[in-house]
């Protein structure tokens, strides 16, 4: 086989592999689609330490998960269900804070750090016409 043919073959194989992996992403098992499971992971177990009601085996967590399941069954939206718990326990019951004015910095600070840091790195490059180090 000529050098050129081998190169082309290598590329074809590589692209085939990429296609297979992409297919794997799309066709693989979906990540947990169970709404009760997903919602449970976003609600804190009040009697535990940092665990969600989905993880905790405590009675309180089980009872709360039952309530979640009932409400899912009754066709309530995720936001309605989270709201139900927030109204009773306060925002502290959410492990996943909502995006609102007072929690905005949670997302904005890391984003600012990413952008600011990126700009700082960008400014470190040698500008055209400067002496190489």
């Amino acid at each position: 086989m000529s050098e050129r043919a081998r190169k082309i073959a290598a590329w074809v194989v590589t692209l085939g592999l990429v296609a297979t992996v992409v297919w794997g992403f799309l066709a693989g098992e979906p990540t947990e689609s169970d709404r009760v499971f997903a919602l449970g992971a976003r609600i804190k177990c009040p009697v535990c330490q940092g665990e969600s009601i989905q993880e905790s085996p405590s009675e309180t967590a089980m009872a709360m998960l039952d309530v979640v399941a009932e409400k899912v069954e009754a066709g309530q939206t995720d936001e309605q269900i989270l709201e139900y718990f927030t109204d009773r326990y306060g925002d502290g019951i959410r492990l996943d804070p909502r995006f609102e004015f007072r929690t905005m910095l949670l997302w904005l600070l890391p984003a600012a750090a990413l952008i600011g840091g990126g700009l700082m790195i960008w400014s470190r490059r040698r500008r055209p016409g400067e002496e190489p180090s």
Partner: peptide, 13 residues
């Protein structure tokens, strides 16, 4: 039973 009142009142402990 079933801790329904507990959850409805939002008892932390």
């Amino acid at each position: 039973p079933g801790a329904r009142a507990t959850v409805d009142f939002g008892v932390w402990g």
